[in-house]
Simulated scan of single mutants.
Amino acid sequence: MKTIITTVGTSLFQNFMKKNKGMERTIKVLSEALLHEWDKKLRDIEMLRKQVKTFANGNPSASAEIESSLQIRKEFGEDIHIMLLASDTVLSRLAAEITAECLAPFMDVQFNEKKDVISGLQAFNYKEFVGQGIPNLVREVDSRIQSYQDVYFNITGGYKGAIPYMTIMAQVFHKPTVYLFEDTKKLIVIPKAPITFDFELFEAYGDELEQLEEGIDNYPSVKNKNFAAFTALEENGLVELLGAGATLSPIGMILYEQYLNQFYSFFCPDNIWKDIQQRPNIKEVLDSEFYLREQRAQRNKSEDTHKTVYKKAGTEERIYYFENDRRLYIYKVFSVNEHDKHEEYIQKYPLTNESKERIISQSKRRQWRKK
């Protein structure tokens, strides 16, 4: 089954007004309302819902989202799963709810107002749009891509400010895009492009990218401390300046998310990095499992003062680690035939606050490719 990620805009209400009079003022008022005003606007919302549902039921051209979804199902000739994503506005959520009801008799359609509304994705505040809306959209879309196979992006409708970024995401994440050409009603399918990326910049400036992802309040001061790194990121279009602050640009966020899909970071001293390279079984664990938080929790084995030790069941491999300020530190590894050494280590080298500080000060960022 093909999964179609579909952003929802307000064409449903624009088309409704072309055929119906009397609700213009209500639609205008609601068009200026963010989602957190939903309860306050509920009376107008329900009045509008009733009339627009009557207009949309049985009307295949009621909106760009409805029309394109029906055409996709027709041309693909198979069942499809529509995943609707709404912006952080009253009208987008209402449009998504009505769209889901209209499409439900014909296909599998998903919309949950608690999970499928993208916080910060709105046209009223650019700083919030860039700092919250686009990052939340990128993460949400990426989570769907990781959870479903045969994913397509439908960019026929949706919030216009997000469409360019949806188009770029489709290419970066290697997913095809569909678009219903308005005049001819022909469905255009843009195939995934054979694009590859050189992530050398991301590997070189992992600390700075991490700071930008979290958002920097006093960017000039932070930049002056590491001028060359931030200048390089700016020159490559990865930094969005927001007054005195800065964050990853929308393009930077999309590329960074794809980078994180392929690589992850941990920190360790040079001698531990050398030990890892000499232990193929440890490298295999780092390749396939260790980067998943739930796997680390599931396979955790507390050993005396060492409370977080990754041990795969039925094997002798152990990875001693801890987390500090969202960073993952590896400070000892043991492979097969090293049981006696690890027992000696536990007794001889307890993990204390002092030893943690020493490990942190000696550690460097390491990039590791996932498999």
Rank of each mutant, 00 (worst) to 15 (best):
L209H: 14
N226P: 02
P194R: 05
N281Q: 06
D217A: 15
N226E: 08
I251Y: 07
S265T: 15
S249Q: 08
N218C: 11
N261W: 01
R279I: 06
L233T: 08
Q211V: 13
S288F: 06
E203S: 13
L260T: 13
Q277S: 01
P280S: 00
Q277A: 04
E289T: 12
L233F: 04
I251E: 05
E214M: 15
Q262F: 01
L260Y: 12
N218R: 14
P194T: 00
G252I: 13
S249V: 11
T196P: 06
L242D: 08
Y256S: 05
E234Q: 11
F267C: 03
D275Y: 01
A229T: 04
N261L: 01
Q262W: 02
V222M: 09
C268E: 00
M253N: 13
F263S: 07
T196F: 02
F267R: 08
V285L: 05
A228Y: 13
E200P: 15
N281G: 04
A244M: 12
F202V: 07
Y291P: 11
E200W: 10
I276V: 05
L286Y: 03
D217W: 15
M253C: 12
Y205S: 11
E203R: 15
E214R: 15
Q262M: 03
T247D: 10
E200K: 15
Q211S: 15
F230G: 10
N261S: 01
F266K: 06
D207M: 10
I195Y: 05
A229F: 10
N218I: 12
F290L: 00
G237C: 11
A228N: 13
S265E: 13
T247F: 13
L201F: 11
G243L: 04
F263N: 08
L209C: 10
T196E: 07
I254G: 03
G206R: 15
K223H: 04
P220H: 03
N224I: 01
D198H: 05
Y259C: 06
Y259E: 00
Y256N: 09
I282T: 01
V285A: 01
N236S: 14
T196C: 02
Y259V: 04
L292H: 14
F230R: 01
E213A: 15
N236A: 14
L242W: 08
R279N: 00
K223T: 09
L209T: 10
N281F: 07
E234L: 09
N281C: 01
K223S: 10
D287S: 09
L238S: 12
G243M: 07
Y219C: 07
E240R: 13
R279P: 02
F197T: 00
E200M: 14
C268M: 04
N226I: 00
E240Q: 14
E235R: 14
K192N: 03
D287T: 10
E214W: 15
D287R: 09
E284D: 06
S265A: 12
N261C: 03
L233H: 09
E200D: 14
V285R: 03
F197L: 02
V285P: 03
F202N: 10
E234F: 11
N224T: 06
S221N: 10
P250D: 02
T247C: 14
K283W: 00
Y291Q: 07
S288W: 03
A228D: 14
A246I: 08
F267K: 07
E208A: 07
I195T: 05
